[in-house]
């Protein structure tokens, strides 16, 4: 399993043809207390860059983009009851949704962890 990062502060774990997507620790810290996550329906199909989810703090609602194209196979139901998971454990239990990857070539050019940490440090 390998983990990629985007410059939109999302992470992607790839396991076979399934990608798990969430937002990074840096992102959750910037957003503050998360109060609600609107997740995509199973079966929804996204092109890379489409609006896929919405994450809400008290004062702001931010769109989460599909980092790669694919079809949603599962959304993290735990976030509906416990949106705070995105704050407490953004890069593990606070994942958003899983996609069946349409085109693995889209993974090329994404950052690895080291590159992302460096990217964040430069912001």
């Amino acid at each position: 399993m390998s983990r990629y990062f985007t410059d939109e502060h999302e992470w992607i774990d790839v396991d076979g043809d399934i990608a798990t997507v969430g937002i990074t620790d840096y992102a959750q810290e910037q957003l503050g207390d998360i109060v609600f996550v609107e997740l995509p329906a199973e079966g929804a199909k996204f092109d890379k860059g489409d609006d896929a989810a919405v994450v809400e703090s008290v004062k702001a609602a931010s769109d989460v983009y599909a980092p790669i194209s694919g079809e949603v196979v599962e959304a993290n139901a735990a976030l509906e009851e416990e949106p705070a998971l995105v704050n407490s454990d953004p890069e593990e239990d606070g994942w958003f949704f899983k996609l069946r990857i349409a085109d693995t070539a889209e993974l090329e050019g994404l950052m690895d962890e080291a590159a992302y940490r460096k990217f964040v440090a430069g912001l």
Binding site: F36, K59, A61
Partner: peptide, 12 residues
């Protein structure tokens, strides 16, 4: 739940 409202969501 003001994130539904215009002053935050603007066109959404």
């Amino acid at each position: 739940l003001s994130t539904r409202e215009q002053h935050i969501r603007r066109e959404k």
